[in-house]
């Protein structure tokens, strides 16, 4: 992380970020008015886009409509309205296997095998975007993360994320059966989508709250502690659950070994 030295703190950074953000808004807004609705995909051929939306709608009408209602308007007591949530939210929920949900529960569980392919998720996202656009993901996310400031990300993580996902990113329990998932093995994109859209009980961290750069800092930090860095303190990290598993380990490993030893020492030979 060569960029870790690059640290501008306090007002200047915040103001700079704000200025950049405002600038970016102006540019994006301008581009939007020019290319709309061609922003959904790289291609500019309107038929191609439409076909994505149409394919998305087909999938939606077979798999999502029962809970989220006609045209994503939502069904009281079953599923929220999807108008305005945007493709980032859809792709996050679908690609991590949370949606479609098998049964109503405290919260949608992750699934090892998503029902839809990434391509199908994109179609669904396109359709939901068509119903009413949501937040956008920067196309150069990985570059942003590579240049990010891990230290600043750490501070953001501890103020905003660790209370639910834990200091070591292992996740944590919420009220009444809900939980914040482990961050183990998540991709940059998933992290970004989750922050942007606030899936399930997670609060939203839209771009006005955490700038794309700050999100990149955060992602860089999470990737560092969860995925990049090998625990320096041993072969087993005991799941990084802290004192609870350490307490189990001292009885299961330490005490058990020593109790067997006492049997051997005092045993008649």
């Amino acid at each position: 992380m060569a960029a870790s030295a690059k640290r501008r703190r306090g007002w200047r950074k915040r103001l700079g970020a704000l200025a950049r953000f405002t600038g970016a808004l102006v540019i994006v807004g301008g581009l939007y008015s020019v290319f709309s609705p061609g922003l959904y995909a790289q291609e500019t051929d309107p038929n191609a886009i439409d076909s994505e939306v149409v394919k998305g709608q087909e999938l939606y009408d077979t798999s999502c409509i029962s809970c989220h209602g006609d045209n994503g308007e939502g069904v009281e007591g079953r599923g929220p309205s999807l108008i305005g949530v945007g493709s980032a939210a859809v792709e996050f929920q679908v690609n991590t296997g949370r949606m479609p949900m098998a049964a109503q529960g405290a919260q949608a569980p992750e699934a090892a095998y998503p029902v839809f392919t990434e391509e199908e998720a994109e179609w669904l996202g396109a359709y939901i975007d068509y119903l009413g656009g949501g937040a956008v993901i920067p196309s150069d996310l990985d570059t942003l993360v590579d240049d990010a400031d891990v230290g600043a990300g750490g501070e953001l993580y501890r103020v905003n994320c660790s209370s639910c996902h834990g200091f070591s990113g292992g996740g944590g329990a919420l009220s009444s059966g809900a939980h914040a998932p482990s961050l183990d093995g998540v991709t940059n994109l998933e992290l970004y989508q989750a922050m942007l859209t606030g899936p399930q009980n997670m609060p939203v961290f839209a771009d006005n709250q955490l700038t794309p750069e700050q999100k990149a800092d955060l992602i860089a930090y999470v990737q560092f502690i969860v995925n990049d860095d090998r625990d320096p303190g041993g072969v087993f990290n005991l799941g990084r659950f802290g004192p609870s598993t350490e307490g189990v380990a001292i009885f299961l490993v330490g005490m058990t070994a020593l109790l067997l030893t006492t049997l051997w020492i005092a045993g008649k030979s």
Binding site: E155, S163, C164, G166, F167, F241, G242, P243
Partner: peptide
């Protein structure tokens, strides 16, 4: 765990066993 700050906490905050 980072330095201690009054506004910072982690899920699964436990004391030693």
């Amino acid at each position: 765990f980072g330095p201690y700050e009054v506004a910072v906490v982690s899920s699964a905050s436990q004391p030693d066993f």
